[in-house]
Design a protein around this nucleic acid. Structure first.
Lengths: 125, 125
DNA sequence: TTACATGCAAAATGTTTGCAAAATC
DNA sequence: GATTTTGCAAACATTTTGCATGTAA
C-alpha cells in the first residue's frame, strides 16, 4: 500500500463513499497531496484488485469508486446525480432459487428522482 | 423508421436479444445490408430514444442493445460472456417500500458462471 | 429539388499504458 | 544502488459528431 494508495483510500472512506476518479483526484490536489490523474487511476485499480474498495459502472459517464465492498444496490438520482446505497434484503433469497450456475456478485441499480429534487424543483443537475 | 433502423430492429429481434453494436453491424454486413458502424450507432440510438429497444451498460466493455424494453435483470456469465434475462418478481415489492423519491427504472445485474461453463470447463471466453 | 439518411474521418470521452524521472528502501 | 512509484504524454476502446455526399420522395 503506497502513500498515494493510502491517501486515496482515506479520502474515499472519509467521503460519502461514492466518488469518481476525477473527484478523488481533485480532493487530492486540494489537500496538497500530489498525484496525477493517471496515478490516481492506477492506485484506485490496485485498491480494487486487493479488495479494499469497489468500482461501479453507473451507466452514463464515469465509473464511481465505492468504499463499500459487500454487494449492495445503488440508487442514482437522475436529477442531481447523487448515489445512495441500498440494502437489498430479498435478493439473496431470490438468487438462491436460481439453479443455473454459480453467483459471483450482483448489483441492483435503481434510477430515481430523490425527494430533494422533487421538493426543491428547479435546481437541475 | 428508416430502412437501416428497421433492419437493425429486425436483427436484434431475431437474435438472442442481446447484441453489441459491433455484432449488429457485423450481422448487417453478412446479410448484405450496408451501413457503417457509426450509422448503426446512430440508428440504434434512435431506436432507443423512440422506445423500441433498450441499451444496457454491462460494465466491462461495450454496451449491449436489448430487444426487451421492460425493466428486468441480467445475468452475465463471467466465463463465456453470455447474457440472460431474468425475472425479478420481488424487486417491485421491495421498491414499493422505499419512501424516498420516485423510481424511474431499475436493473439488476448478476455476475455468475453459467452451468455450461462449469460443466464444460476449459472453453474459456 | 428538397429533405433526410448515410459514410467517412475526426473528435470526444473515460481510462490505461510505456517509459523516463523521481522517490523510497 | 536497486526497486518501487510516479508523471507525462501517447495509446486505447467505445461512442458521437460534422460535414459532404448520396438517395429517395
Amino acid at each position: 500500500m503506497t502513500k498515494l494508495m493510502q491517501s486515496l483510500y482515506d479520502i474515499l472512506n472519509n467521503s460519502c463513499g461514492h466518488l469518481k476518479a476525477y473527484d478523488i483526484h481533485k480532493i487530492c490536489l486540494e489537500k496538497g497531496i500530489k498525484g496525477s490523474l493517471s496515478s490516481v487511476y492506477r492506485c484506485l485499480n490496485l485498491l480494487v484488485e486487493e479488495g479494499y474498495i469497489s468500482r461501479i459502472r453507473l451507466g452514463d459517464g464515469e465509473d464511481i469508486f465505492d468504499k463499500t465492498i459487500t454487494p449492495h444496490g445503488h440508487m442514482i438520482c437522475e436529477c442531481c446525480g447523487k448515489v445512495k446505497d441500498i440494502e437489498v434484503p430479498n435478493i439473496q433469497d431470490h438468487l438462491g432459487t436460481l439453479n443455473d450456475g454459480k453467483i459471483l456478485s450482483y448489483d441492483l441499480k435503481i434510477k430515481y428522482i430523490c425527494n430533494d429534487c422533487i421538493g426543491g424543483m428547479g435546481d437541475d443537475k
